[in-house]
Amino acid sequence: MGYKAKFRVWRGDGGEGELKDYTVEVNEGEVVLDAIHRLQATEAPDLAVRWNCKAGKCGSCSAEVNGRPRLMCMTRMSTFEEDETVTVTPMRTFPVIRDLVTDVSYNYEKAREVPSFDGGDVKPGEFRMQQVDVERSQEFRKCIECFLCNNTCHVIRDHEENKEHFAGPRFLMRVAELEMHPADVADRRQIAQDDFGLGYCNITKCCTDVCPEHIKITDNALIPMKERVVGRRYDPLVWLGSKIGVVKRGKETPKA
């Protein structure tokens, strides 16, 4: 049943810190977050960690376990050998506040720049949408905002300089969600490219790989968005049509 597991946990703040070794009791069925909590309750009451629901629904306990971006509450201890050392470090793309807690304000800043849902003139209660039409956006709305996709994305993971011009998979997916929302009337294709850096994405699918909700971010959000942007900007028929006034260009929605 129970055994003593070896852990190495990042401890520190203010840009300084180190991996510290701990031995923690682990019982059947437990996850990494249980072990971290046991550490808190016994030898490290000040060990900083974010968590809420402990059921993979809130996206708070994001960290890197043996170098892999994961939710600690969904990482079962049974996936490790009993003699294996489990290393837990904070998300690398965001500045560390303390121990396993990072400053994720980048994500909230990007969220504010995406123009919100615009339902046009439809009154509350009068929206009519078919299930098949809402399912694409619904997939993206499963997102629990754990920010593991943004954490793992190589565009910003070791490139602080790209953060200004790149919203990361999470918020490019948000743009896609709104673009595919059957009742939304805004047009965010231009800003997806110009302001949110869709062009930086070279579809390595790392974001899809780490998504705890198994959202197909690359295939279902980012690639279709790239296609839409291309259609908007480079389709020769659309270009010609708009030049001679056959195709009317809708108003482009500016960054919020």
């Binding site: 209660g125 929206f127 949408m129 299930q131 809402v134 956006s137 619904q138």
Partner: peptide, 24 residues
């Protein structure tokens, strides 16, 4: 309650649908 739900939809919520396209 119904007004509060419809209002959410006008703010961008995407509920599951009935065949008629209403909120299921």
């Amino acid at each position: 309650a119904p007004d509060r739900i419809w209002e959410l939809e006008a703010w961008g919520a995407i509920f599951d649908r009935t065949k008629e396209g209403k909120i299921s």
